[in-house]
C-alpha cells in the first residue's frame, strides 16, 4: 500500500465526528474606524514609513534626496517614469536583480489593522524583486484600503494566482537577544507612497 492510501485510511478510521464549519464574525475590529489613519499608524508600528504622493514633490528629486547612495533604481509602475528610474520588464534572470538598490512596485490592497499590503505577481517582473531589492517602495491608492484581514481575503481572488504576497514593513529579525534589527534578508526599508 502506498503512503497516500495508508494515511487516508488511518485518518478515516481515527477522525472525530463531523463538526460544523463556523461562520465569520459580523463586524470585526476597526470596521468603522478611519481606515487611512489606522493604516498609517500601523505602517509606523511595523517599521515602514509613508508619504502622500502629492506632498512628496517630483519623484526623481525625492529619490535622490532620500536614497542618496542608490545606484540602481527600478520601477514596475508605468505611472512613475522619471529621470534615472529604469522601467523593469519581465525577466527570468534573477542575477540581473542583485544590484538593485530601490524597487518601486504597485500594491493593490492595504490592510488598516496591520499595515500589510498585497502585492500580486502580475506586475512583478520577477517574484524575488520585493525581497532582493535593498529598499522597497510600494505605491498604493488611498481608496484601496480595507479594515482587516477578513475583508482583505474577501476582496482578493485566488483564481489564476501563481504567487501573491502581503508585505508589512521592511525585512526584520529579533533573533539576537530580541533586539529588533531591520534588514535581515530582504529589503532594509519599506516606504509606502499613498496616492489618489
Amino acid at each position: 500500500m502506498n503512503a497516500r492510501t495508508t494515511i487516508l485510511q488511518a485518518i478515516r478510521q481515527n477522525k472525530p465526528e463531523a463538526k460544523e464549519r463556523p461562520s465569520f464574525p459580523q463586524e470585526p475590529t476597526g470596521s468603522r474606524t478611519d481606515l487611512l489613519s489606522t493604516f498609517c499608524s500601523q505602517l509606523l508600528t511595523v517599521g515602514a514609513e509613508w508619504v502622500h504622493e502629492e506632498e512628496m514633490g517630483d519623484w526623481s528629486v525625492f529619490l535622490s534626496n532620500y536614497y542618496k547612495n542608490a545606484h540602481r533604481i527600478v520601477t514596475t509602475v508605468p505611472a512613475i517614469q522619471a529621470a534615472g528610474i529604469d522601467m523593469l520588464h519581465e525577466t527570468n534572470e534573477a542575477h540581473d536583480l542583485w544590484d538593485i538598490d530601490v524597487a518601486i512596485v504597485e500594491g493593490t490592497l492595504g490592510v488598516a489593522e496591520n499595515g500589510a499590503i498585497w502585492l500580486p505577481e502580475d506586475p512583478l517582473p520577477h517574484r524575488v524583486l520585493p525581497f532582493i531589492t535593498q529598499h522597497l517602495i510600494i505605491r498604493l491608492h488611498r481608496k484601496n484600503l480595507v479594515a482587516n484581514m477578513h475583508q482583505a481575503y474577501e476582496n482578493l481572488s485566488y483564481e489564476g494566482l501563481g504567487f501573491g504576497l502581503f508585505v508589512a514593513g521592511p525585512s526584520k529579525t529579533a533573533d539576537i537577544e530580541q533586539s529588533l534589527v531591520k534588514g535581515a534578508q530582504g529589503a532594509r526599508t519599506a516606504l509606502v507612497v499613498l496616492y489618489i
Binding site: 508600528t45 499595515g115 517574484r127 494566482l161 504567487f163 504576497l165 502581503f166 508589512a168
Partner: peptide, 19 residues
C-alpha cells in the same frame, strides 16, 4: 507569536514559475 499585528511577509505559493 511575537505581538506583531502580522508577520512582515505572508507569502502565498500557488503555482511554480514557468520553467
Amino acid at each position: 507569536a511575537t505581538g506583531q499585528p502580522i508577520t512582515v511577509f505572508t507569502s502565498h505559493y500557488h503555482r511554480p514559475e514557468p520553467g
